[in-house]
């Protein structure tokens, strides 16, 4: 079964007369790593807001994990997002007044499903958060108890990744998560989340204007003039 199935989707913002996304058809398999490339203003953010169910398309349908998002109410979509989708922003991913640990646990705060998944594995959410943080190289009391604003940008993005991954969501969406990092950090961040997603079988949707890293993904699409164009399907995905 596909993780995401989009059929004949068209979308335009209220008050604008031209559709930003037109007639998009795409299926993404479970566990697939997809790179979506697009210049700013190409509709990347709109596409993501449709995928996470913040907005609904005017025509067409989006099916995520077998659920038709356009048939759910706004509250149901919020709940669906909380339970099944991890999200990483470009920058400033963390709530400034929460500790590193609390930022990670935020996902469990709003999703009983994710919390229960952790509890069923015999762990407490705090333990799981610490384990994930350690897996992403964030250990030690110093980091865990620092103000999140005192962390380096790279560390902040890794905390955000932990928050997105905790409680094993099926889909991870990363919206330009590396654009605020330097080159070394970009590479290690991409390799980290690819590795984590492979490890847990998470479907990864990675959005960026920077095409340098597309070879690490199963498929690459380009968002151009409202269309999602399949650009390449590397014979051999380069593993990082």
């Amino acid at each position: 079964m596909d993780a995401i199935k989009i059929k004949k989707l068209s979308f335009q913002w209220k008050g604008q007369n031209k559709a930003l996304l037109e007639n998009i058809d795409i299926s993404i398999a479970k566990g697939e790593h997809v790179f979506i490339q697009g210049k700013s203003g190409s509709g990347k953010s709109s596409l993501l807001s449709l995928l996470v169910g913040i907005n609904l398309p005017q025509t067409g349908s989006i099916e995520v994990l077998g659920s038709q998002l356009n048939k759910l109410s706004a509250a149901e979509r919020d709940e669906f997002r909380a339970n099944h989708i991890g999200y990483i922003f470009q920058m400033f991913n963390l709530v400034p007044y929460l500790s590193v640990l609390d930022n990670v646990l935020l996902s469990c705060t709003f999703s009983k499903v994710r919390r229960d998944k952790i509890l069923r594995s015999g762990k407490q959410p705090v333990e799981e958060a610490q384990r994930l943080l350690a897996e992403l190289g964030l250990t030690g009391d110093e980091i865990l108890h620092k103000m999140v604003t005192e962390l380096s940008v790279g560390q902040q993005q890794r905390v955000a990744a932990c928050r997105a991954l905790i409680g094993s969501p099926e889909i991870l969406i990363a919206d330009e998560p590396t654009s605020s990092l330097d080159e070394d950090a970009q590479k290690s961040f991409i390799s980290l989340i690819s590795k984590e997603c492979s490890l847990y079988g998470v479907t990864l949707i990675f959005v960026s204007h920077d095409t340098r890293y597309k070879q690490y993904f199963d498929r690459t699409f380009e968002l151009k003039e409202g269309q999602l164009v399949l650009e390449n399907e590397p014979q051999n995905k380069v593993s990082v």
């Binding site: 706004a74 709940e79 922003f89």
Partner: peptide, 16 residues
Amino acid sequence: RREMAILRSVGAKPKH
């Protein structure tokens, strides 16, 4: 607004 977007991303509803 940023903080609210973060909360929304982890599933907070507008009512939250």
